[in-house]
């Protein structure tokens, strides 16, 4: 790891002012991606601003939404009774990320700000039409996830929480890479006020995306049969040492089938 300075922010305001004052700073949430990246010297920074003590760990029912603080660890979401009551799909998604030690540190805010094309959370945010709260504004999930490892966040902006509307029913199913546990393909199917939404992670060259044709087919008839003949464009899918685009296309359909079957309120 290259030399760096470390600052543990004592509040969100402190983190904001440190970020504004520094030429080149990075925010440290759980560090489960950032620290390995720094260790491999794939990234370098003059200053790490640790958000661990900034609060941002509240999970609350706002009436219309389930609001989860950006610094909630995957383990917090996995074990939260409020999450299990309001949107159980999110609890089981969080419980399937990485391994126990990764879930003990990795956070919701860190995951979405990194926007790894194989991360699980982006699929849930897109499928539910979540709202991302930052230190500056609110951003709709559709506008937030811009491309691979790319978001709409400004340099000075800090994710503070995510608000999830409660779906009629939803499920997230992934085919985990057997070594890394990242989603080779992960599909979140949600029915929101009668509308069917299908968001796919792990497969797209530009990161998470919604599959409009499958959504249309499922709006007509909500069953695994309905997507049998929907075309899945391999041209826009990732191809790497883990899986070719053709195999990923197969997994997209299969994981969508499983998610439809697993859908629960």
């Amino acid at each position: 790891m290259y030399a760096t300075q470390y600052h543990k922010a004592i509040s969100l305001d402190d983190a904001r002012s440190q970020l504004a004052a520094a030429d080149d700073a990075k925010l440290l949430a759980g560090g489960m991606t950032l620290i390995p990246t720094l260790k491999q010297r794939l990234a370098q920074t003059d200053l790490l601003i640790d958000l661990a003590d900034t609060g941002l760990t509240l999970i609350e029912d706002t009436g219309s939404h389930l609001k989860i603080g950006a610094m909630c660890r995957h383990y917090d979401v996995e074990t939260s009774t409020l999450v299990a009551t309001m949107i159980p799909m999110l609890g089981s998604l969080a419980g399937g990320i990485g391994d126990r030690q990764v879930r003990n540190y990795g956070t919701l805010g860190g995951s979405i700000a990194n926007n790894d094309p194989s991360a699980c959370y982006p699929a849930a945010l897109m499928a539910l039409g979540a709202n991302i709260h930052t230190s500056e504004r609110d951003i709709a999930a559709e506008d937030f996830f811009v491309g691979m490892f790319e978001t709409d966040l400004d340099e000075q902006e800090i994710v503070t929480a995510v608000s999830f509307p409660k779906p009629d029913k939803a499920a997230y199913v992934k085919f985990p890479n057997p070594a890394s546990r990242y989603a080779m393909v992960g599909v979140c199917v949600a029915v929101m006020d009668g509308d069917v939404r299908v968001a796919i992670t792990g497969a797209g060259q530009d990161g998470v995306f919604r599959h409009n044709d499958m959504e249309a087919a499922l709006s007509e008839q909500f069953s695994a049969m309905a997507i049998e003949t929907v075309a899945i464009d391999e041209e826009m899918l990732l191809s790497d040492i883990h899986a070719g685009a053709d195999y990923r296309a197969h997994l997209v359909r299969e994981m969508t089938r499983r998610a439809i079957t697993a859908c629960q309120p």
């Binding site: 470390y6 543990k8 560090g31 620290i35 390995p36 661990a52 126990r100 030690q101 990764v102 540190y105």
Partner: peptide, 18 residues
């Protein structure tokens, strides 16, 4: 793996200052 405040962590992925 070690425990930090009773919570398991991979100590190769945590800075000492944390």
């Amino acid at each position: 793996v070690i425990h930090i405040n009773g919570v398991s962590a991979k100590s190769c992925t945590v800075l000492a200052v944390q």
